[in-house]
Amino acid sequence: MTLDRRLTPATDRVALESLAGVIERPAYTPGHPARLTVPLADLMTAPDGRRDRQVNFGADVTVIETRGDWCFVQAALDGYCGWLPAAALGTDLPPITHRVTAPATHVYPAPDMKQRETASLSIGARLSVAGIEGRFARLATGGFVPVQHVGDRPAPDPVPVAESLLGTPYLWGGNSRWGIDCSGLVQAALTACDIPCPGDSDLQRVAFPAVDDIRRGDLLFWPGHVALAMGPDRMIHATAFAMAVIVEAIPDALARIEAAGDGPFLGIRRPALAQPAALA
């Protein structure tokens, strides 16, 4: 059996107990929960290796193996597996109540915007808010963020979420305001609406049903690339063509990508919008 490395919670030495009898490893583990405690971290193919994707502050993971200063984990968001610095993880897991809804925000040591910020968080960062003090949300993990930048309900439409990231620089494997790629943008937009979404474009293409007509919120696919339809004629995507998140006319993008020899158009997929609910 060939398993997708990105989604297989196993190293060459240890696998999750759920894989016993599926793949052979010297040891199996139930794993243990942890949470990202730094603003952003690269999820690596190997300790100190190449970036596959990124995980944002507050991301929950299952730790499968610790090897020196590195932990092999599986992300709860999308099942993606890889290596994170052990120092970036904590085991204090207060309930998640909010997430960052602005493209980015700052964490302050006190509920005062004139204080020097202690960290910067990207859209999608998951927060444990312990209370509200004036115009700031007090985090259970320490620090304060502006209440205007956080929310406790899903967004109703992925398109405005993606539009809020216009101009964000393109970054291969990126998942934040500081740099994002095509599948990272789509995942950020859909996740904000509580629509489960894989991390890479090939996985996204098989996750949603195919359709023939283009509507707002649909996903458009090419080999190694995905865009989010804003309507039947326009799309938004993070593209190496502009090295940024841009809006482009769909007919123009189809012609440009075909002329560049970057592969045929692979079709349209339609995620189903989730029903509004409180964050879990």
Rank of each mutant, 00 (worst) to 15 (best):
86 A>K: 14
85 P>H: 04
102 A>D: 04
52 D>V: 12
44 M>V: 03
37 T>F: 05
81 C>H: 08
32 H>I: 01
103 P>I: 07
24 E>L: 13
76 A>Y: 02
110 A>Y: 08
73 V>E: 10
33 P>S: 12
25 R>V: 12
63 V>N: 02
59 A>N: 05
90 G>S: 01
93 L>C: 06
102 A>Q: 00
114 K>H: 14
78 D>A: 05
111 P>E: 03
29 T>N: 14
51 R>D: 04
101 T>W: 08
58 G>W: 10
109 P>I: 08
86 A>E: 12
79 G>H: 07
73 V>G: 07
79 G>C: 08
31 G>T: 13
35 R>Y: 06
52 D>I: 05
76 A>E: 13
87 A>T: 12
96 I>F: 01
31 G>F: 05
109 P>M: 03
40 L>C: 09
109 P>S: 01
51 R>M: 13
54 Q>W: 09
81 C>F: 10
27 A>I: 02
39 P>W: 00
74 Q>D: 03
32 H>V: 06
91 T>K: 06
111 P>G: 15
101 T>G: 02
46 A>Y: 14
67 R>K: 05
71 C>P: 01
114 K>C: 02
77 L>K: 15
84 L>D: 10
22 V>F: 08
37 T>Y: 07
46 A>L: 12
53 R>I: 13
63 V>R: 07
38 V>P: 00
36 L>P: 06
77 L>Q: 12
114 K>G: 14
22 V>G: 10
95 P>E: 07
34 A>V: 03
64 I>P: 04
93 L>N: 11
66 T>R: 15
60 D>M: 14
107 V>N: 00
59 A>E: 14
78 D>C: 04
96 I>V: 15
44 M>K: 05
99 R>Y: 07
58 G>P: 09
52 D>T: 15
81 C>N: 03
40 L>S: 15
72 F>H: 09
22 V>T: 15
43 L>E: 00
81 C>M: 09
107 V>E: 09
106 H>A: 15
100 V>N: 00
85 P>A: 06
39 P>T: 13
101 T>Y: 04
78 D>I: 11
86 A>I: 00
81 C>L: 03
49 G>L: 01
71 C>K: 10
90 G>P: 06
112 D>N: 12
98 H>R: 03
30 P>R: 08
108 Y>R: 10
80 Y>S: 10
107 V>S: 00
